[in-house]
């Protein structure tokens, strides 16, 4: 494997739902250690691309390369075990489990999936790791509460902690700050920047200023098609992007 093989990449990815093409022939590289933001208007195909990258479903056509190997078509649980982890656009936690148990179960997925006998209360290391992850996202004081009792912003943070549980090499975050207050957003951005030091991050985000500030590169989708890719300043200067997206945002 050469040094500049991207950790994750899509080649000619097309996704059709019935007759509708949600994603059409998209090719993109996600280099190791970089923070890539995916932007585009509603319905551009961002979440669809995320689903393909995280193995929720295989693309109708095209390849997903992880460290240069095609992994499209593997079942989703293999993706998490390979180190590709994601948080959902719509909050997706285990509502009736405690906050700590949410994260602990996520940690457990890496090692003890079919342990029928050891009481889970004896998994000391997993519990410690869960608490540590909750500390990273600032939820350590809510460990005992049910996930469903958390405020919306806290649930979004919980998702990030769960996505981190498998010690991912690539972390996909689908609108992690959606519906958050400005203060909460600042907190989550701090967390993301911390995580960016240890893994490759791919982010879908609508808050433009934020995207421009934190990304290494930006990928723009429009109507399921690749529109542009580049560093924030290049994207800002791109006329076509301005027309279809940045312009719309200002309305």
């Amino acid at each position: 494997m050469s040094h500049d093989t991207p950790i994750l990449a899509v080649r000619g990815a097309t996704m059709r739902f019935g007759g509708f093409t949600a994603l059409s022939n998209v090719t993109a590289d996600f280099p190791v250690g970089e923070l890539t933001a995916i932007i585009g208007p509603n319905g551009a195909g961002k979440s669809t691309l995320f689903n393909i990258l995280s193995g929720a479903f295989p693309p109708t056509e095209g390849e997903v390369l992880f460290n240069g190997t095609n992994v499209a078509g593997k079942r989703q649980h293999h993706f998490a075990r390979m180190g590709i982890s994601k948080s959902f656009q719509i909050t997706n936690v285990f509502p009736e489990l405690s906050v700590q148990e949410n994260v602990r179960v996520a940690v457990q997925a890496m090692t003890r999936r079919f342990d029928l006998w050891t009481p889970r209360s004896r998994y000391r290391e997993m519990i410690d790791r869960a608490v540590e992850l909750l500390r990273v996202v600032g939820l350590e004081n809510h460990r005992g509460r049910l996930a469903s009792e958390l405020a919306h912003g806290e649930q979004r943070s919980l998702e990030i902690a769960m996505a981190m549980a498998c010690e991912p090499k690539v972390l996909l975050l689908d609108e992690p700050t959606a519906g958050m207050s400005p203060e909460e957003t600042v907190g989550v951005i701090d967390v993301i920047l911390t995580l960016a030091k240890s893994c490759t991050i791919i982010l879908v985000e609508h808050k433009m200023k934020l995207v421009m500030d934190i990304s290494d590169q930006i990928l723009v989708l429009h109507h399921g098609e690749f529109l542009a890719k580049g560093a924030p300043h290049e994207i800002r200067a791109n006329d076509e992007v301005k027309r279809v997206y940045l312009g719309e945002g200002r309305k």
Binding site: Q76, H77, K86, F88, L97, Q108, A109, D115, M162, A163
Partner: peptide, 21 residues
């Protein structure tokens, strides 16, 4: 057991359980 926890996770949210691995 640990497996009991997995069952609860599947009951609570299959998609999330799958995404966890």
């Amino acid at each position: 057991s640990g497996f009991g926890a997995v069952l609860e996770a599947v009951r609570e949210n299959e998609d999330r359980a799958r995404a966890c691995g």
